[in-house]
Amino acid sequence: MATEAQGGEGGGLVFHPMDQFKIKPLFGGDTIEWYTVTNATLWMALAVLAIIGLMVLGTSRRATIPSRIQSIAELAYGFVYKMVEDVAGKDGVKFFPYVMTLFMFIVFANFLGLLPMSFTTTSHFAVTVVLALLVFLTVTIYGVAKHGTHFLGLFWVASAPLALRPILAIIELISYFVRPVSHSIRLAGNVMAGHAVIKVFAGFAAIATISPVSVVAITAMYGLEVLVAFIQAYVFTILTCVYLKDALHPGH
C-alpha cells in the first residue's frame, strides 16, 4: 500500500484513499473464498432489503391514493418505464423488469455507499463488469436470436459510401466490443473517484489550519457525489436501453 507520509505541522499527513474499498470477511478469518460473507455481501444484502422495503412493503397497501413511500416506488416505476419505452421502443417493454433490476440495484448501492463508514459495492470492477457483461450478452444473444445475420447490419452502415463501409464496419465492431468496458468502468470509476477524493480531503483535515477548508470541501464533494450517485445509475440504465434498442432494431 502506497502511503505518503508528509512532514506536516507536528503530526504526519497520511492518505489511505483506497482503504475504504477493501473487502474484508465479516465474521473473522483471513481468507476470502467464493462463499465467504464479506462486507460487500452485507451491503449488497442491505441494498436488497432496501429495495424490498421500498418496492414491496411500501406498496403493500395498494392504495389508490398513495402514501409517501408508495409515491416514491411509483415514481421509480414510472421513471424507468418511460425511459425504456422512449429509448428502446414499445417492444422493449419486455426488458423492463431487467432494466428496473439494474437501476434499482445501482441506485441503492450508490446511495447506501454514501453513508459514512459504509462500503460501496458499485465501486468494484468485479460488480460493474458483471453488470455490463450481462447487458452486453443480453443484447448480443437476443439480437442474434431474433434477427440472425440481419443483426450484423448493425456494423454495416448501409447509408455510407461503399468504399467507406469496411472501414466503418471495423470501427463499429471495435466500438461494439468496447461498450462493456466503458459501461462498467464509467460507473465504478465515477463512484470510486468521488469516494477517494472525499477521503483525500479527509486526510487534509488532520492539519488544524486548513481543516475548515477541508470540511467545506468534503461537504461540497458529498453534495456532488449525491448527484453523481443518481446520474451514474441513470446513465447506466439509459445506455442499457440504448444498447437494447440496437438488439431490437438493428440497422441504422
Binding site: 466503458s182 464509467r186 470509476g189 473517484a193 446513465v235 439509459i238 445506455l239
Partner: peptide, 14 residues
C-alpha cells in the same frame, strides 16, 4: 445530453 456527458466523462475516468 446525459448520454453525451457520460461518454465524455468516461474518457476522463479512464
Amino acid at each position: 445530453l446525459f448520454i453525451g456527458i457520460a461518454f465524455a466523462e468516461a474518457l476522463g475516468i479512464f
